[in-house]
Amino acid sequence: MQMKRLLGSLVAVSLVATLAVGCGGNKSKETAKGDFSVGLVTDTGGLNDESFNQSANMGLQKAKNDIKVDVKAQESKKDDDYVPNLTRFAKDKRNLIWGVGFKFDKAIPDVAGEFKDSKFAIVDSNLGGKIPSNVVAVTFKDEEGSFLAGVAAGKTTKTNQVGFIGGMSSPLIKKFEAGFTAGVKQANPKATVKVVYAESFSDATKGRSLAKSLYDGGADIVYHAAGGVGKGLFDEVKSREAGKYWAIGVDMDQSRLAPEHTLTSMIKRVDVAVFEITKQAKEGTLKLGTEVNFGLKDEGVGLSKNSKISPEVMKQVEEFKQKIIKGEITVPSK
């Protein structure tokens, strides 16, 4: 009896819900907007990826608070979602629409071609140089920041062996690897860099086993540019002796993942870029159809303030930083 009554009431509730849904449907298209509105579409990493999507959203929220623009962010669940998500913002007549991540390099030109009156921005891709007239391409000199991480690692290592874990072996991640390796070599010619790739951006278990084999193989510092895979690196280093084994984080300050073991993090200020470009767009000073490249000079990349690097090493890192800014050192990106 009880079951029957329960079922009955469930059905009744659902009927009411369906009715209410029917009535509520038509007001859903309205969205409140200020003078200037911005939309941001993440790639499949989502808003809480502890990486560039999250950082981009921080920049967006800063824009909302500091320069009072109306913002809205949307996550993509599949690669196929990029076009409809961008289109939704364009139809909503948002003034500036962000696609976060190089994965948007096909979707942005498509949608930008269709909605010529909207402005678009893409992070981490220069669209192969073919940037439409209503798009701005935002890129970072990841190799420069990685170079500094390499200097810190090269100067800090006791075993003269450091490791690098990459996500997918793609040109973007190669920039991190090239910069890091060059930095290590410059700082400590005796040191070797062992490079491994997880061929994933999400497999933390793989990250942990790769980190384990690097540490067991003699490396005492491991840097990663592998998104979610990196969480495995921090899990592994935490299980080892503090002060002897180190990990270097990427994209954001990742020290909270292993506070005692994080040497530093190579920060990519996607938030700065998103905020700056959004601000320029609002003020009408944004140049479209070009690539904007954020490097050490623009504080677009760098090492996190929160670091365990020793003061002597830090001084040398700072010297290299100035040399790069002055152009005395050109960091390879391949």
Binding site: V21, G24, G25, S28, T87, K91
Partner: peptide, 21 residues
């Protein structure tokens, strides 16, 4: 939930492009 399901259904049958997607 009501506005959420409302948004859900209106987007399925809403505009031609929603229906297309």
């Amino acid at each position: 939930p009501i506005s959420a399901y409302g948004a859900l259904f209106s987007s399925v049958f809403g505009s031609a492009s929603d229906m297309g997607e």
